[in-house]
Computed example of a mutant assay.
Amino acid sequence: MSKLSDAVKALINAGHAKPGYTRASADVQPALINFASSAKEKKVGLPAWVTLSTAVSATLNCPEAMTSIFHLANSSDSQRAPVQNAELIREVGLKCISFNGIPRSINTLGAFYGSLPSDVASSLSTATTREYTAANVEARKKDGLALWDQVYLGFERKLLDKLAQSHPDLPVHIINGHYGNLLSDPRGKKTGANVGRVLTSLVAIACLRSQTGVGPQVTSHVFGLRKAYENGDAHAEGQEPVEGGEWLASNDGNIWMLENIDKLVNVICCGEGTTFAPGMRAKL
Rank of each mutant, 00 (worst) to 15 (best):
96 C>K: 01
144 G>S: 07
89 I>H: 04
129 T>C: 02
153 L>Q: 15
115 S>W: 10
94 L>V: 08
101 G>D: 03
88 L>E: 08
108 T>A: 12
148 W>L: 07
134 A>T: 08
149 D>F: 10
127 A>I: 12
82 P>K: 02
160 L>W: 07
92 V>A: 07
80 R>K: 10
157 R>V: 15
147 L>Q: 11
135 A>T: 10
99 F>N: 00
96 C>W: 05
103 P>E: 05
94 L>Q: 14
82 P>L: 07
125 S>G: 09
84 Q>P: 13
127 A>V: 10
127 A>Q: 12
156 E>P: 03
131 E>V: 07
132 Y>F: 04
88 L>G: 01
156 E>K: 02
128 T>K: 05
136 N>H: 01
145 L>I: 13
135 A>Q: 05
112 F>K: 04
146 A>P: 05
142 K>C: 03
78 S>W: 10
161 D>H: 09
148 W>R: 06
90 R>Y: 13
123 S>G: 03
102 I>S: 03
94 L>M: 10
151 V>H: 07
86 A>I: 02
123 S>K: 01
139 A>F: 11
74 N>E: 11
157 R>Q: 15
129 T>Y: 02
113 Y>I: 14
141 K>Q: 06
79 Q>N: 15
97 I>C: 02
91 E>Q: 11
114 G>Q: 15
83 V>I: 10
120 V>N: 04
150 Q>G: 10
80 R>E: 11
80 R>Y: 09
155 F>H: 09
107 N>L: 14
100 N>G: 03
105 S>E: 08
95 K>E: 00
144 G>F: 06
155 F>S: 12
80 R>A: 05
123 S>M: 03
124 L>T: 03
109 L>D: 00
128 T>R: 02
98 S>I: 10
129 T>K: 00
81 A>S: 11
124 L>G: 06
84 Q>S: 13
87 E>D: 08
125 S>H: 09
116 L>D: 06
105 S>G: 02
92 V>F: 01
77 D>P: 02
106 I>Q: 12
112 F>Q: 04
